[in-house]
Simulated assay, not measured.
Amino acid sequence: MLILTCPCCHVTAEETEFHGGGEAHLKRVGPDGAEGEFESYLFMRQNPKGVHLERWRHVYGCGKWFHMARDTATLEVFGSYAAQTLAPPDHIVDAIRKRHPDWQWPAAS
């Protein structure tokens, strides 16, 4: 079982109080986007074994969305941060790199 902390209301609880919402930091496609781009936005997602940045919602709490970094293989949670953040904050990146020194956020590559 995952123990998560909501960065909005600072409640720490079991994952059953939250709901996963898929991959974080997706770039939305506007009305003028190509069909292939829209299809990619809707259906193509990463499913890595290892570090993954995800969206979560504090369903039985404040109701707000946030992002979280975790390892899908070990279920280790590196931290959570506000959904309005465009990139993982430095303290999250540092926590990830302590365990995975070679890790690079795809958008930074």
Rank of each mutant, 00 (worst) to 15 (best):
G36Y: 11
K98M: 07
A108D: 13
R57Y: 05
V29N: 13
Y41A: 12
N47G: 11
Y60E: 15
H19A: 07
A13W: 02
E15P: 03
E17V: 07
M68A: 08
F78K: 00
K98I: 01
L2Y: 15
C6F: 09
C8D: 12
P106E: 00
L86C: 01
Y81E: 05
F38K: 14
R28H: 10
G30M: 11
H100G: 05
C8Q: 10
A107P: 00
T5Y: 03
Y60Q: 14
G63S: 04
N47V: 13
R28G: 15
L53Q: 02
R45F: 13
C9A: 02
A13V: 10
G22V: 08
A73Y: 06
I96R: 04
E37K: 08
T85L: 06
D102T: 09
M1K: 14
G50W: 07
R99Y: 08
L4M: 14
F38H: 14
Y60P: 07
T5H: 04
H25W: 09
K64E: 15
P106Y: 08
C6E: 10
A108G: 06
H19E: 07
A95R: 03
G50M: 10
S109H: 13
E76M: 06
A108R: 06
T74W: 03
A24E: 04
I92S: 01
C9E: 08
T72Y: 01
C6M: 07
A69P: 05
D94G: 01
A95G: 01
G20D: 12
A95N: 00
H91E: 00
N47W: 11
F78I: 03
T5S: 06
Q104Y: 09
E54F: 00
F18Y: 07
V59R: 14
V11N: 13
K27D: 12
H19F: 10
G30E: 15
C6K: 11
R99H: 13
F38G: 10
R57G: 10
C6G: 09
A107Y: 00
K64H: 11
A34R: 15
A13G: 11
K49C: 09
A13H: 11
W56T: 02
V29I: 11
K98T: 06
E35P: 13
K27Q: 14
A69F: 06
P88M: 00
A24C: 05
H10Q: 07
P88G: 05
M68C: 15
Y81C: 03
R57H: 04
M1P: 09
H25P: 04
P106S: 03
R28S: 13
A24K: 04
H52I: 03
R99W: 08
V11D: 14
K27N: 08
Q84G: 09
L4T: 08
H100M: 06
G79S: 02
R45C: 02
T5D: 01
D94H: 07
A69H: 03
K98N: 01
V51D: 00
V59Q: 08
G50R: 13
I3G: 09
E17D: 06
L42W: 14
Q84E: 12
D71W: 10
A34W: 11
P48I: 01
G61M: 05
G50P: 11
P7R: 05
G21L: 11
E37T: 13
G20N: 11
Y60K: 15
A69R: 03
E37N: 09
A108S: 07
A73Q: 15
R70K: 10
